[in-house]
Design a protein around this nucleic acid. Structure first.
Lengths: 191, 191
DNA sequence: CACACGATTTGATATAGATCAAATGATTTG
DNA sequence: CAAATCATTTGATCTATATCAAATCGTGTG
């Protein structure tokens, strides 16, 4: 899959871009490869890069009272970025790590913003992505507040059916806001 | 405070708009007044209106297992809208209710989108508002996951120092994801 | 101004999930 | 290929908060 197809598919999903804009955008993309477990964004960095996953997977995580907490997973065709640093001018509380050998497309916020000045469609596309993220978080909030450990686990499996074979349970547990032990017990009941 | 000042202040906060755009925008605004406890968006509606609070306050809430759960508060100079319905094409799970006698500015998504076609700055402004909301939710997620009932209460008071005198404790409790009884006990310890 | 009803507090008990500890299972590497 | 290290499970106990029930406080209305 070339960069053109990737940009095409993103553009179809979120907001259509002119050929012109697509071409200029492609010029700003970087292909990056990371080995399994490689950390490519660190806590404290001011990183304004976003990543789109071509193959593999990644997670954003942070330390809360010395505990590693996974905040966000991303798989093929999904975005990941150090959300706080990318969108505000604060250092990132998150690390980002590849969870498998992965190939990503990198783009800087600077490049996007510059391009958006002449191509408003790109601004709409960004808005669409942020809106989608916001709605996901909206869902996550109610999931955390109202579902039992078991139900949260079921929901995650529905959203990411292949996750079990790709991601260690520790990360899944911390993302679901429960301990590893609780997740293990929930899984036993499940089947 | 007239509509012009309101739009000015929003534009200063999020992304500057041309005079042209401001004027056209003002033509699309509606002043609405609601009495205390009046419900102005109902569950199940497809409502694409957003509200900016001039005076008063409002909440977005929904029913979870027959329990009234407050998802969002808004006070002077903040926005509120039926987030799911506004940004996707689904019926709103939320009701929106005035919590005091309130004056709001209403605008339809249709009007915004139409204007944004000729004024890209408006698209940027929308993006900025959605981004801000997303970052707030990000914070809320970690607050729900990691803070004790007492800490969540303290945080809310810091964010909204006047909330106690304006909003009943039931709504505060459900927004913090705890029962009214727990909130009451937390408050006793506090002071 | 008193009654009534909603808001808040207080008390007793139950429970989901955390914590601590250890055993077992799986996978990487020298 | 075996030791070492990491991942997962299992068990026993603890705890924050929920739940259920009832008492008190406050305030809007007739």
């Amino acid at each position: 899959m070339g960069l053109t197809e990737i940009v095409e598919s993103i553009q179809i999903k979120y907001a259509s871009l002119s050929t012109d804009c697509i071409n200029e955008l492609i010029g700003q993309l970087q292909i990056r490869s990371f080995a399994k477990n490689e950390i490519f964004v660190k806590e404290g960095q001011f990183s304004k890069k976003a990543y789109f996953i071509i193959t593999g997977s990644a997670r954003a995580y942070y330390y809360k009272n010395d505990k590693d907490v996974t905040d966000w997973f991303a798989f093929e065709s999904e975005f990941i970025c150090p959300i706080v640093s990318f969108f505000s001018d604060k250092p990132s509380p998150h690390y980002i790590q590849a969870l498998e050998d992965s190939t990503l497309v990198e783009i800087s916020k600077e490049a996007i913003d510059k391009l958006a000045k002449t191509h408003c469609e790109l601004e709409s596309l960004m808005k669409a992505i942020v809106t989608e993220t916001m709605l996901k978080q909206q869902k996550r909030i109610s999931s955390i507040l109202f579902y039992s450990a078991e139900d949260k686990y079921k929901q995650l499996l529905e959203e990411y059916p292949t996750i079990l074979s790709r991601i260690p349970l520790t990360h899944i547990a911390s993302h679901l806001g429960m301990t590893l032990e609780t997740l293990s017990r929930v899984r036993k009941v499940q089947n």
